[in-house]
Structure formats: C-alpha cells, structure tokens
Simulated assay, not measured.
Amino acid sequence: MEKTIILQSTITCPNCGFQKEETMPTDACQYFYKCTNCETTLKPKQGDCCIFCSYGTVACPPVQSNKSCCN
C-alpha cells in the first residue's frame, strides 16, 4: 500500500508567528518563502532541504515518500 502524500502544509513565520496554509510543489523544493504578514524571507534551517521541512506542519513530498529531498 502506497503512502498518501499530503500537499498542504501550514507555514509558521519564526519572526512574527503568522501562519498560512500553502500547497507544496511536488516536483521541486522551495528554498525561499516570503511571509505575507511581516515580509521576512524564510530560508531552510541547517540540515533541512526546504522551508516546509523547517517551518511547515508537514514535511515536503519527497521526505514524506522517504526519498532524498531535492538533491
């Protein structure tokens, strides 16, 4: 049985705490994200592959599939 991939993730800005649900791309990693509240540009934390793995409620699709992400 194949695992269902979740494409919605809620990003929490570490600067202002604003949360927004976003749809994750399935064919690319998102390295940058601009907070729509405070306009801070988020980048992945060290060791994470994308902003969803660093600041989202759900890891990106490649990580959910147990694949190496975006490398």
Rank of each mutant, 00 (worst) to 15 (best):
C38A: 08
L42M: 09
T36W: 05
A59G: 01
P61S: 03
C53E: 04
K67S: 07
Q8I: 12
I11P: 06
K34D: 14
Y33E: 04
F18V: 01
L7V: 12
A28Q: 11
P44R: 10
P14T: 05
E22N: 11
N71Q: 12
K3Q: 11
C50I: 02
P62R: 01
Y33M: 04
S9N: 08
C60N: 03
C69G: 09
P25C: 04
Q30W: 09
C38H: 07
K45E: 12
Y31Q: 12
K3R: 15
N66I: 00
E22T: 11
M1W: 11
M1V: 14
C49A: 15
Q46E: 15
E39D: 13
F52G: 05
V58M: 02
F52H: 12
C13E: 10
N66S: 15
E39R: 15
C60A: 05
A28K: 13
P14K: 02
C35H: 10
C35T: 11
T12H: 02
C69A: 13
C70F: 02
E22H: 11
C60P: 02
C16H: 09
C29K: 10
C13T: 06
N37M: 07
K3E: 14
F52T: 04
F52K: 02
C69H: 03
S54K: 03
S9F: 10
S9L: 07
C70E: 00
E2R: 12
K3D: 06
P14W: 03
T41H: 01
Q19C: 13
T12K: 15
I11R: 02
P61Y: 05
S9H: 08
F18P: 01
M24N: 06
G17P: 08
K45M: 07
Y31V: 10
G17N: 08
S68I: 12
K3P: 00
I5P: 06
A59H: 10
V58T: 13
N66M: 11
I5M: 10
Y55I: 05
F32L: 13
S65F: 00
N66Q: 13
L7I: 13
C38W: 06
M24I: 09
C53A: 09
E2F: 10
C29H: 02
C29Y: 01
C60L: 02
A59V: 13
A59Y: 04
C35D: 08
Q64R: 05
I51G: 06
C60S: 04
K67A: 11
P61I: 03
Y33K: 05
E2S: 15
C60W: 05
P25T: 09
S54F: 09
K67Q: 15
I11F: 08
P61A: 02
G47Q: 03
T10Q: 14
K20C: 06
V58G: 00
C50P: 03
L7F: 08
E2D: 14
K20M: 10
I11A: 03
C35R: 07
V63W: 00
P44H: 13
G56V: 03
M24H: 05
G47Y: 06
E2T: 14
A28V: 00
F52M: 08
T40Y: 05
N66A: 14
I11Q: 04
T26F: 08
V58F: 00
T12Q: 12
E21I: 13
C35L: 05
C53V: 03
P25F: 11
S9R: 06
G17A: 09
V63H: 02
N66E: 15
K20Q: 15
Y31M: 13
C38Y: 06
Y33T: 02
I6D: 07
T41V: 15
